[in-house]
């Protein structure tokens, strides 16, 4: 469809939120709590934060929950019954006030879960997902969306993208049919656009590196001493992966009691030492430098190579969450500078 531009003011925006919520949608909106901002389900309109630069956690759990119940089972002495879960019954989730980086991340997730084998559970959730984006008018030193072909006002992944204007109103770009249907249902809340330009208000995020160069360097940089040097500080926790909007490593676990139980898909991280450990004791990625390399390689080399997308939206969450200042932007800039000869 051809994108449309409308204007909505703050009061109307709150009304839109409330009306969507009242319609039975699960609203997923950022709230400031415990000294940080995170998305929560169905907060009151008054609780929603519009002032944060970035939430600590991403919004990937709307489609890839930290624990997903794959199916249930009941076993008795000689028989096993599988009880399937009807994922068509998951409610429509509206991600409200997601920054363009988060919105864009969904398309990367789509690739992961749909290349080759199709993950029906992911898709069931994804089909019910609506993204109301919010352009960034502020950014910090960890943001680098522009370096990965996105930007503070990027429309990718949003059904409606809002941009706050200096006058307190919002530009609403209606980008998809889904967005349009929401806008149409609540047409009275919107007013016509007067040619407002969002570029004026958008945060300035300078491009810091060429991701093409990074990808190219990585292709030949597998054995570079960079990895050892730059990962000595890494303590091997999963914070970066867990806050990342694109990291999708997972584990499959059974939980049962007295023969009844469920099989679960849980978040995991390639940074954990046990992640690739074989039963034989052999570990293909034995030390942290190899695991850190895997993380960056996966995002900036393997995924571009295999699926033609960058596994990073430049949200900077991992840098912010890292307890030991493993700053991904710093490292990517360094990687870009590396002079590595092609083999």
């Amino acid at each position: 469809m051809i994108p449309e531009k409308k204007i909505i003011d703050r009061v109307a925006l709150d009304k839109l939120y409330e009306s969507l919520k009242a319609a039975g949608n699960k609203m997923f909106a950022p709230v400031f709590r415990n000294e940080q901002t995170n998305f929560e389900y169905n907060p009151a309109a008054t609780e929603i934060s519009y002032s944060h630069i970035q939430t600590t956690q991403s919004v990937k759990n709307t489609v890839f929950p930290k624990i997903e119940n794959l199916f249930r089972f009941e076993s008795s002495q000689k028989s096993v019954e599988l009880v399937q879960i009807d994922f068509t019954k998951v409610p429509r989730v509206i991600v409200w006030n997601a920054h363009p980086c988060d919105a864009a991340a969904f398309s990367a997730l789509d690739s992961v879960f749909n290349w080759d084998y199709v993950d029906e559970i992911y898709n069931a959730r994804r089909e019910k997902l609506v993204v109301i984006g919010m352009s960034c008018i502020r950014a910090d030193e960890n943001c680098f969306c522009t370096s990965v072909d996105l930007g503070p006002g990027a429309v990718k992944g949003s059904d409606i993208l809002l941009t706050p204007l200096a006058n307190g109103k919002f530009i609403a770009e209606i980008l998809t049919d889904l967005g349009k249907s929401i806008a149409d249902e609540n047409a009275s809340l919107f007013t016509a656009s007067n040619g407002e330009n969002k570029e004026e208000v958008l945060a300035k995020v300078e491009k810091q590196f060429s991701h093409e160069k990074v990808t190219e360097n990585l292709k030949n940089g597998f054995e570079n001493s960079f990895w050892h040097e730059f990962s000595l500080r890494c303590i091997g926790c999963g914070a970066c992966a867990y806050v990342c909007p694109i990291c999708t490593c997972f584990d499959i676990q059974d939980e049962s009691k007295a023969g009844k139980g469920r099989r679960l898909r849980c978040w995991d991280s390639c940074g954990f030492g046990m992640f690739t450990l074989h039963t034989s004791g052999h570990n293909p990625r034995e030390v942290q430098s190899q695991r850190w390399r895997q993380r960056l390689m996966h995002k900036f080399s393997y995924q571009p190579d295999r699926n033609e997308f960058i596994g990073c939206v430049g949200c900077g969450r991992c840098s912010r969450a890292c307890p030991v200042d493993m700053n991904i932007l710093e490292q990517l800039v360094e990687l870009e500078k590396l002079e590595i000869a092609a083999k």
Binding site: V112, F113, W115, D116, Y117, D119, F222, T248, C249, F250, D251, I252, D268, C270, F275, T276, L277, H278, P284, Q294, M297, H298, S301, Y302, D305, R306
Partner: peptide, 24 residues
């Protein structure tokens, strides 16, 4: 190859050897 796998279909991230998925 016998890398560790969980999903078996290129999603869980364990069996990567470089860009290759041992499972796929």
């Amino acid at each position: 190859l016998e890398n560790r796998m969980k999903c078996g279909f290129g999603k869980c991230g364990r069996c990567n050897v470089g860009k290759y998925y041992v499972c796929k």
